[in-house]
């Protein structure tokens, strides 16, 4: 019950934050949730099940293109487009999961990176797939309808943001529930020792494929909203480096924790925009210009520092500190506090 309450409070607070900001920041807010879905998919796949994937942006991209195709190509309701996007990502996830049944660790990382490259350079960009990607111009999604209502991407950014946020809170809540449930334990058992999991009755094939499928579906759910938020789809947001950034930021924020995904999403969407908007000017008489590149440098350096100093990620570290302070306070008050 506490969890449901926490999710509701988080939703109510977060839903109000972009109000009053300009369109650019509203776009950032919606984008932050989309990226947060991508990071959440890694919390499930890497944090819970211990499988490495460097192609999460590909899943998001497949979700985005499928949704774009449904809306621009078949004039479907956006809801249908989202369902189709999630389904397509799920199927691709299960397919990617098949080699993962045999491969682990860094080998799997390389193979998924290869998959990301094939989609980045081939599927999203080649003539052969124009029916899917809408050609070089991509799909334009100006006239989408959702629940029968007209969704003009420039005017209804807030609406898209609220829908995205609500979905994110629900999925996040389900993920937290899953963690402490029987199925969650089985998934975590695969992470800690596949050998023991299999011999203790966990069906590895089923759970690994399910994990890949669900993870891809989560990434695809975020991605399928991209056309609505951005107005069109292009390969660039879902290229290889986004996949790498997903991995880097998920680990940086704490890959085992659901709230870390939200934190990472905000970091990924807002910081580069702030840098490009306010990153130039003069300081002490010298002109400076901070571009997007600085963001990626910061991600790289922060990741390195974090992995050396805070192995459990930013959120994991904050959480540990909070729990420590809480138990210390409890000890002062003379009562026993359970630290899970």
């Amino acid at each position: 019950m506490f969890r449901v309450l926490a999710a509701l409070v988080a939703f109510t607070v977060l839903a109000r934050i972009p109000v009053g900001f300009d369109v650019g920041f509203k776009f950032d807010a919606a984008l932050a949730v989309i990226w947060a879905f991508g990071l959440l998919s890694l919390v499930l796949l890497t944090g819970y099940v211990g499988q490495i994937s460097l192609c999460q942006a590909t899943f998001a991209g497949v979700g985005a293109y499928t949704a774009g195709l449904m809306v621009a190509g078949f004039h479907a309701d956006y809801l249908v487009a989202v369902v189709a996007g999630v389904a397509a990502a799920f199927v691709l996830g299960v397919i990617v999961g098949i080699p993962a049944l045999r491969l682990r660790g860094i080998t799997l990382a390389i193979v998924t990176l290869g998959i990301a490259l094939v989609f980045d350079r081939y599927v999203f960009q080649d003539h052969a797939f124009e029916w899917f990607t809408g050609g070089t111009a991509g799909w334009r999604v100006d006239q989408a309808t959702m629940f029968g209502l007209q969704m003009d991407s420039s005017k209804h950014l807030m609406a898209a943001y609220i829908v995205l946020l609500a979905l994110f809170c629900v999925v996040a809540l389900l993920m937290v529930n899953l963690h402490d449930s029987g199925a969650g334990r089985r998934l975590r058992a695969i992470r800690d020792s596949e050998l023991a999991a299999a011999t203790m009755g966990v069906n590895l094939t089923r759970y690994k494929l399910l994990a890949f499928g669900m993870s891809a579906a989560i990434a695809g759910l975020g991605g399928s909203f991209y056309p609505l938020v951005a107005g069109s789809v292009s390969p660039q947001p879902f290229w290889l480096f986004t996949s790498l950034q997903f991995a880097a930021i998920a680990v940086l924020m704490g890959v085992r924790y659901v709230p870390a995904a939200a934190l990472g999403g905000v970091f990924m969407a807002v910081v580069p925009d702030v840098l490009t908007r306010f990153g130039h000017g003069t300081f002490m008489g010298r002109a400076y210009d901070i571009s997007y590149d600085w963001f990626q440098i910061a991600v790289g350096v922060l990741l390195i520092v974090q992995l050396i100093a805070l192995p459990d990620g930013v959120w994991g570290d904050l959480r540990a500190r909070a729990l420590h302070a809480w138990s210390a306070a409890g000890a002062l008050g003379g009562r026993k506090v359970k630290v899970a």
Binding site: I106, A247, A248, F295, I304, L307, P311
Partner: peptide, 16 residues
Amino acid sequence: VVKAVITIGVLLALQS
């Protein structure tokens, strides 16, 4: 795996 992820950080930093 942790060491491999660190090299991804190095990659992003050097690349940018």
